[in-house]
C-alpha cells in the first residue's frame, strides 16, 4: 500500500549568493548593490597592495624605482584605470547610499494609495544623476590617463 508521509519534505529554494548577481526582474538599485560590492572589494585588494608598494619609499630611491618599474607596464596602467573607474562608481553610489541610509532625502511616509511610489522611486532621478556624474568622472579620468600621457 502506498503511504503518504506526514513529515515535511521541502525543497530548498534559496537564491544564495547567486541571487546577488541575478534575482529577477528588479530595478536598477538591486544591481547597483552588487556592483558596489564588487567595486569595494577590488578597491580593498588594491589598497592593501598599494600600502606595501608605496611603503618602499622609505628604502631609498633605488628601491622605489625598482618597485615602480615592476608595476609600470601597460597592463598595470589599464588596471589602474579600471580601479579609477571602480572608485568613481563606488564614490558616487556611496553618496546616494549615505544620503538615503540616514533617511535624509527619502521624504516622509505617506499612505499607500495606488499606484504606489516607493522612496527608491522618489529619488530615481537623483540616482541617475549620480550615475551620470560617475560616468563623467570616469571619462575625465580616462582623458587624463590615456590622452595626456
Amino acid at each position: 500500500m502506498k503511504t503518504v508521509s506526514l513529515e515535511k519534505r521541502t525543497l530548498p529554494h534559496r537564491l544564495g549568493i547567486g541571487g546577488w548577481a541575478y534575482g529577477g526582474r528588479y530595478g536598477l538599485e538591486r544591481y547597483l548593490f552588487i556592483l558596489h560590492r564588487i567595486a569595494g572589494l577590488s578597491i580593498l585588494l588594491y589598497f592593501i597592495l598599494h600600502i606595501f608598494i608605496t611603503g618602499q619609499k622609505i628604502n631609498g630611491k633605488q628601491a622605489w624605482d625598482a618597485v615602480m618599474g615592476s608595476v609600470g607596464g601597460t597592463w598595470f596602467y589599464i588596471g589602474e584605470y579600471l580601479l579609477f573607474v571602480a572608485v568613481a562608481f563606488h564614490a558616487m553610489n556611496g553618496i546616494r547610499l549615505i544620503l538615503s541610509e540616514f533617511g535624509w532625502i527619502l521624504g516622509k511616509p505617506k499612505r499607500p494609495i495606488y499606484p504606489y511610489q516607493s522612496a527608491n522611486m522618489r529619488i530615481r532621478v537623483f540616482t541617475w544623476i549620480m550615475m551620470i556624474l560617475a560616468v563623467i568622472i570616469m571619462a575625465v579620468g580616462g582623458f587624463d590617463f590615456f590622452l595626456m600621457h
Partner: peptide, 27 residues
C-alpha cells in the same frame, strides 16, 4: 563606516586629483 566614507570622499579626491588628474590640473 559611514563617517569614514565621508572622510575618504574628501581626502581621496585630493589624492586622486594629484595622482591621476595631474595632467588636467597642470593644464
Amino acid at each position: 563606516h559611514l563617517m569614514a566614507a565621508i572622510v575618504i570622499l574628501i581626502v581621496l579626491s585630493i589624492h586622486f586629483g594629484v595622482m591621476h588628474l595631474e595632467g588636467i590640473l597642470q593644464m
